[in-house]
Amino acid sequence: MRGPSRLLGALALTCSLLGLHGCASMQAEQTRALLAQPPADIPSQAVLSGTPFFPQSELQCGPAALATVMQSAGVRITPDDLTRSVFLPGRKGSLQIDMLAAPRRHGVISTRIEPSLTALMHEVAAGHPVVVLLNLGLAIYPVWHYAVVIGYDLPSGEVLMRSGTTELQRLPLYTFEYTWARSGQWGFVVLPPDQLPAASSETDVSDGRVTFERLATPQQAVSAYRTALQRWPHNLVMSLGLGNALMAAGDARGAADVLAGAAREHDSAAAWNNLAMAHLKLGEREAALSAAEHAVKRAQVAEPRWLDTAMGTLSEVRQTLSGK
């Protein structure tokens, strides 16, 4: 997890942002570059005016920010519904790991974005409000606060947010960059399984979907993996995920097709092993034996962590063959 591992919610929104602005001018390289040469592939201004707004109660910036982006993703939910899962009274705030986990329990996927102002603006331009973690205090006295970026205005050099009790807060880009940098520019979007972030890395998208699969229905997981593989068709982890999700959904033939492609392309012990199981499910015993033998061979040569599993699968296939 990037950024602070232990985080406090906002103690209050009384920090003087005017004072921070003076410091910001010394540490705003991204802002200077962005204003000097705005990205050509997004508009100079964007605002997601239809984004819900939940004025936060004391210390409840985490649940309020989450409800904002989850409602934007189509989930009917309120901050009160999320308080128990993300708010820690003893720490007076919400941990990043809990903020990422909560949406996945409701059928939507939280995904980290790339830590940059340009990535943030690409998400907003794509229609995705972004949860960000800011430090509104000082290095020696941090005041952590979750807000939701819903817009930007490059001509005026501002970021637009749902923040605290302010429905539309305009913050100078210089100040925003300074306060955001303290969290390692940590931010994420929440989207339905059939949508992708505009500015997340392949690794972050893969990680988000793998975690989502553990809590999702098989059909939701299939949708999530299929959507991501349209952008990254050669990703082994997501190909394995799609194969497993199809198996769980009762589509062994679809799983076998996906896993066969992954096994051939990557010569992966895991893919060969899972392909053997798919063939076995389909009653294709000879094909299952061939795939299981490939899995063992590959594990012996280059992927020893899969050897025990592959040997177990091969034994199961041989027992099935001997009993036919």
Rank of each mutant, 00 (worst) to 15 (best):
D80T: 12
D80R: 14
D81L: 04
T83Y: 04
T83W: 01
R84N: 06
R84K: 14
R84G: 07
F87E: 05
L88Y: 01
L88P: 00
L88Q: 13
L88G: 03
P89W: 06
R91I: 10
K92F: 11
G93L: 10
G93D: 13
Q96C: 09
I97M: 15
D98W: 13
M99Q: 14
M99C: 15
L100A: 09
A101H: 11
A101V: 08
A102Q: 12
P103Q: 13
P103E: 11
R104L: 15
H106M: 13
G107V: 11
G107T: 05
R112Q: 11
S116H: 07
L117M: 15
A119K: 04
L120D: 07
E123P: 05
V124T: 14
H128Y: 11
L133T: 00
N135D: 15
L136S: 10
G137M: 08
A139W: 07
A139D: 13
I140H: 03
Y141M: 13
P142R: 02
P142W: 03
P142M: 12
V143A: 11
V143D: 15
A147F: 03
V148D: 03
V149M: 08
V149D: 06
V149K: 02
I150T: 15
I150F: 02
I150D: 03
G151I: 10
G151E: 10
G151A: 07
D153H: 04
L154P: 06
P155M: 11
S156Y: 02
S156R: 14
E158L: 13
L160N: 01
L160S: 05
M161F: 07
R162K: 14
S163R: 06
S163M: 10
G164K: 12
G164A: 12
T166W: 09
T166Y: 10
T166Q: 14
E167K: 15
E167P: 04
L168H: 13
Q169N: 09
R170D: 00
R170W: 01
L171H: 02
L173I: 12
Y174S: 15
Y174A: 15
T175A: 10
F176G: 07
F176V: 10
F176L: 13
A181T: 14
A181C: 07
G184E: 12
G184M: 12
W186V: 08
W186G: 03
G187I: 10
G187R: 02
V189K: 02
P193R: 00
D194T: 04
D194P: 00
Q195M: 13
Q195H: 06
P197H: 01
S200T: 04
E202M: 08
E202W: 00
